[in-house]
Structure formats: C-alpha cells, structure tokens
Design a binder for these strands. Structure first.
Lengths: 210, 210
DNA sequence: GTCTATAACCGGATAGAC
DNA sequence: GTCTATCCGGTTATAGAC
C-alpha cells in the first residue's frame, strides 16, 4: 500500500508492515491499533475483521501485478524481450509494495484458507502461465535451449525474484536496475564466461560426491 | 526430522509438519498433541516450551547443512565443480528435511527472536560465505563472468533452491536429480541457446517499457 | 510417561457512550 | 470516528494424580 492518503489506507499500510515483519497470525489487532494511533476496537469501524485487511492488501498487490503482465502480453514481444520485460515488471511490482509481496510469498498457505481469497489459486496460475508460455515459445522457436523444463525454470526464476522483497531495504540500498541487470544476465547467459558449446546431452552436472 | 525412532523425535517430526504447513504461531500445542496422540500437557514432559521444539528442529537442520558445506570445502574443488557440488548438497539437505527448511525460510524473522537461537545470524552468514567465496574465486580466475555481483548472485541462487522445499511433494513427484540438473544448467549457462559473445559492457537489459 | 484439571493470560471481536 | 468496557474462546504452561 504505497502513500496512504486517508485513515483507512494508513491502517492497511501499517498492518502490511507488521504482517510482513512478524507474520499475520502473530500480529495482533492491538499492535495494528498502536501503530496507527488508535485502539483496537476502533479498527472495526473501518474493517469487519483482521482477515479483511489481509484480503485488501493481497488483492491490491495481485491487481497491480496482473495489470503489469497484461500490458506485457499486449506488446507481443519476441521471447527474449518478453521474458526480460516480465523480469523488469516483476521487480517493479516488488519495489512498489514489498510488504504485500512478502506477505503473499510467506503466507500463501494461510491466505488460501481465507474465503474472500478463494480465487487465489486461479490468479497464481495466471501469473505462472505468463512465464511458462514465454519460456515454451522461446524453446520451440530455438531461441532458448530446447532442453529446458519450462515449469521448473519458471519456478527457479520466480523464486529468485519474489524473495527480494525480503532483502534488507530491497530496491533501495541496491538500486533496482542493478538487480534487474544481474538477474537478467544470470538467467539469460549464466555464470560461466565460456561454457562448452551446447549439445542436447551435455546438460549433466559436474558435482563431486561428498 | 527424518525417521523418528522414539516418542520425542516423533513429537518433533509431527511439530515440523505442522509448523511448515500452518506457521509456528498458528500451530497450537493441542494440535501437536493430537497429531502425536497425546494431550497437550503431556508434551511438556518432553520439552519445556513450544519454542524449544522449534529450536531443536532448526538446529538439526542447520547442523546437517553446515556439515555438508564443510565436506564440500574440504574437497578443494575448482570453482565450477565446487559451485555445482554446493547446489547438489543443498538440494539433498532440502530433500532430507523439507519441513525444517521451509520453517527456516518462512519464519526467519521470528526465529531470530528466540533467545536459544541467538547464533542464527552467524550461521546464516557462514552458509552465505560458502557460496560467495566460490563465486568470487571463479570470477577472479576468469572462469565465471567478471561482471557478476557475487552477493547478489548468491541470493538469486539461494532463493531459487531453498523454496523448492515448498513445492508440491518436492523431490518426489519431480526427482531430485532432475531439479539439480535444471538448476545447475540454468545458472551455469543460462536460458539462451546462442547468447551473443560476452563483452564487459554487454550486460544490458533488452526489456521493453510498458 | 501420560492424564486431568486448571491457572493465568491473550486473542479477535462487540456494544454502546461520546 | 474513536474510546471504554467487556465477552468469550483459545493459548501456553503448570501441578499433581495415576
């Protein structure tokens, strides 16, 4: 919840910070009241329950993210550019509301139990498909390696991006363009300076056994 | 906690599953008692508090992980092999005790507040350094790209690996060697089949603006 | 080693005054 | 729109019987 301009948004903003820092169920309505300067009972004038606050925070976050992905899809970019734009927009959404992102990542299991968030699984699937479609198209067109497992690759990429919301002052101490550049280069060309030429059966691990 | 062989380990095992699935603070001692077939009061014969259970679960997990990394360090491998071995051993530790891994990832902030776990920050730093040292050595020796930001790269790699503990039946439906291979290939050579030859200033993003 | 019973407390939520 | 006062159920933890 960026830039609260009224009492209600201020409550959501403070609640976000507490939920992200301590978890939803260990944050008490009394703490939320303290943070915003009112007594817990007064919160119930603005929201019917604690879970209603959570619901608004998460819906706002997902609305923004899905709107970004819809704009990316509308550009009809080639796979490389599309993937890099998804990375960029994902980092931007993390920067816009890191607390909401963190809550979504940390407490997905709990969020699924909130009746008002029953569409969560569907929304998660839509987000996932934006990535998987791009990866699969790139592999099919010979732009990405043909041996990639698109769903698994997406999860590695997603796992890399979303938890940056937890990083100490993410996107502030480390400027967001630096993160975007590191992430993009890492996933596009990898760590090795001069990898051996790609062959279909070449993807084996060189790990030693301990 | 794999393979409980006594009542005490059984309690830890069931508690692990509940903490991982619902979070620590929303898991009640009554639920733990139910899961193990005793009343909540009886748990206190085995453990002085709920946090004491958490402490043992986390210490066991970190003991295993750090022992693995120590064995890797003792092999004195070259950067590529060392990094790939760290990846492999990390996946093995996730597979050995996914619940503990999940708790550690999900509730790091809360764990830090448990007095008996006051060394958590130090241990996290040691784990991190195993990776960063490898990345920096590889970059210095011209084996990895010279432009990598080692701490940031580590966090992307770690972020990719640890949350696999949360994946539906991680390491079961998807065999662990498949995950290791995908992860290793992804980070070593990236997604692109034929990336442009590396130049120092070439690491720019091709993302479109939405 | 487990059970019963209970202490002492804290949680979300409500009702009505101002 | 906020405060006071309170309800009630759930929470960890304890004490002592078996």
């Amino acid at each position: 919840m960026p830039k609260p301009d009224n009492r209600r948004d201020e409550i959501l903003h403070e609640a976000s910070k507490l939920f992200a820092a301590k978890g939803i169920s260990s944050t008490t309505v009394r703490e939320i009241g303290d943070a915003v300067g009112m007594l817990s009972g007064s919160l119930y004038h603005h929201f019917p329950s604690k879970d209603a606050m959570v619901t608004e925070i998460i819906n706002g976050y997902l609305d923004d993210l899905q709107a970004r992905y819809a704009r990316v899809a509308a550009l009809n970019l080639a796979p490389i550019e599309r993937l890099e734009t998804l990375i960029l927009e994902s980092f931007k959404s993390v920067e816009l509301d890191p607390e909401a992102c963190e809550i979504y990542q940390n407490e997905y299991n709990y969020l699924r139990t909130i009746p008002a968030l029953s569409n969560l699984g569907q929304r998660a699937k839509e987000i996932q498909n934006a990535w998987i479609d791009t990866l699969e198209e790139g592999a099919a067109r010979g732009i990405f390696r043909p041996d990639i497992d698109a769903p698994v690759c997406y999860r590695f990429i997603g796992n890399a991006i979303w938890p940056t919301a937890r990083w100490p002052r993410a996107g502030r101490s480390t400027p967001i363009d630096h993160l975007v550049r590191e992430c993009t280069t890492l996933f596009m060309r990898g760590l090795e300076l001069n990898p051996a030429p790609f062959t279909v059966d070449g993807a084996t691990t060189r790990a030693a056994s301990v």
